[in-house]
Nucleic acid binder design. Sequence first.
DNA 1: TTAATTTAAGCAATCGATTGCGATAAAAAT
DNA 2: ATTTTTATCGCAATCGATTGCTTAAATTAA
Lengths: 346, 346
Amino acid sequence: MKNQKRTTIYDIAKKLNLNASSVSRALSNNSNVSEATRKLILDTAKELNYKQNSLASNLRKGHNQTIGVIVPRINQNYFADVIAGIEEVTYQKGYNLVICQSNESSAREVKCVNTLINQHVSCIVISLSADFEDDKHLQTIKEHGIPLIQFDRVAEHLDTFKVLNDNEQASIDAVSHLIEQGYKRIALLEGPQNLNIFRQRKAGYLAALKKFNVPVLPELIKENAWTKELGAESTKELLNLAEPPDAIFASTSDFSALGVLEVATKMGLKVPEELGICGYSNEAFTEITSPSITTIDQYSVSMGKTIANLYFQEIESSEKDNNPKIVSIKPKLIVRSSTLRNKTED
Amino acid sequence: MKNQKRTTIYDIAKKLNLNASSVSRALSNNSNVSEATRKLILDTAKELNYKQNSLASNLRKGHNQTIGVIVPRINQNYFADVIAGIEEVTYQKGYNLVICQSNESSAREVKCVNTLINQHVSCIVISLSADFEDDKHLQTIKEHGIPLIQFDRVAEHLDTFKVLNDNEQASIDAVSHLIEQGYKRIALLEGPQNLNIFRQRKAGYLAALKKFNVPVLPELIKENAWTKELGAESTKELLNLAEPPDAIFASTSDFSALGVLEVATKMGLKVPEELGICGYSNEAFTEITSPSITTIDQYSVSMGKTIANLYFQEIESSEKDNNPKIVSIKPKLIVRSSTLRNKTED
DNA sequence: TTAATTTAAGCAATCGATTGCGATAAAAAT
DNA sequence: ATTTTTATCGCAATCGATTGCTTAAATTAA
């Protein structure tokens, strides 16, 4: 069952007393082959169970119709959705997807990049790992002439195609909403500031406070509260302050917000009356917690489609060296019970 | 930036007045090259920014170190987790992953299979689409000598490697648990019976009833209740019966169970006192609904690892034509509030 | 009937890396 | 000093498909 040679165009050619070039042409269905021999070739191809060897074809053509995707984690809703969106479009175009996960480690990210370069992929799509510091590997991609599309977590100063969420505006919307609901002391759970997305979310938080002339209180800003556990921990500290916050914006993730909710519930605080909670990402579960959690939807699937379309429209089609384009998608604030104490708005 | 030729081993050879074969040998790091020239080659390779062309290498070597994975949906927790598990192992081995999603359509599944065969992948891992009927494409894989590992949703009669969950035993456990909690009229939400997993889950339901001498009531078995919406619909019908069930086993998914819970809550039924609910899959949200939902964990990530290990241990390593192996993983019943009315057990 | 044109198919190089075999030079053995 | 062995490296074929160019055959035009 193993090691059996697969039939090649030469096998077909030999059987029909033809040249391999004719077989190739008949199979690719375009050039100068008579209808009679074409049918003959197609038939024996089927008969001999012929399948094209993409390796050889791609080597000859100098490209393989494959897009490489590197994400921190495959099994994280946001990234899985983006990938699904990319796949949806690339499949239509007959392209393939090679998926790598960096596991939030930039060392591993570098290895993934090298593999994809070796594979001669047509394009690399990447969202950076949490410990991002150095963009040398991204430079390498550019040096090899491979189109590069960064999304979500990006190296901002690097001149590449980018598909982004407007994290700052989303945060402004969220915090503004909290203020409008009458919350006075709004805490922020922030993520690692080496990542653009968390910097932007913090900036949005600060901008919104400024807009409403609300003073910034450093003791209400908690670093490193990414996970549910860390979110819970930070919440305990916040709620034990002499003057605790009356709302918490978990800008890191909905998981963090869930940690907030669980601690608040455990401590007997009423949500949203005594504590407002806002998360980020619109994970499926935010809709079914009690109370349901206000959050921000990132249109992840459509973001994936945007990425793929960007490649096909801007990069693959035209040969001219157009400037890398930046597409920004505006996320949407999803208001739910966890921040709705001003019932007039509902 | 485009169309620049990448440096090949010939470029390196020319620059050093050597033959390409020496460069290849130096790069592959094993054969007869003197230390001096090896260092020379390695240095200029770095200098010229050389990256191997995997296409050429794989074509020559006759295989590409890639495993193709076909799943119904990438962004479904269970499959995303399995993929993450596979990736974890394959990454260690220096293998790549090509991911395809069939979108629950077997027509598309066939196309995916063909693409992967063309790519000369080393192995194909597949979980069948919902409308599975014909396994011709799986036969084709075997005919081409490509190792095939089916998981979860499989064509049972086809002689291939398989990694399965013991769905029947899991269902027996779940239903037995319901009976032990004193539920008398247990309804079943079942999925399409062309898929082995749903057949097995139904079989487990029936077996458990038989074990406890509980009569099977056809009006309590609802077909086609896969999604949350369909689960809700079926629940309404069930609860409007003259003699409604006192427990519902949503064997299709946790989403279906969520639909059950929402309808029950809306109709003012107390869970678990008046209605017991059990789902399937241990989706993240089942832990945080109120009440939390009893469900079955499938060890998805570890299942992915098992799949990959099966390939490396059983298939890749030994050349002998060993019989396809079947690995069964026993899922675990996670008892939560939605079925716990007999408090002694907690 | 002959010349011009179109059509069909073969030839051979190419993509880039790998590898068995042979050749040369240097080192070791006699 | 001569022969044998070993270490290095080059040569050339190979993997399978593609494609520009050429040739042969068939068709049309004159």
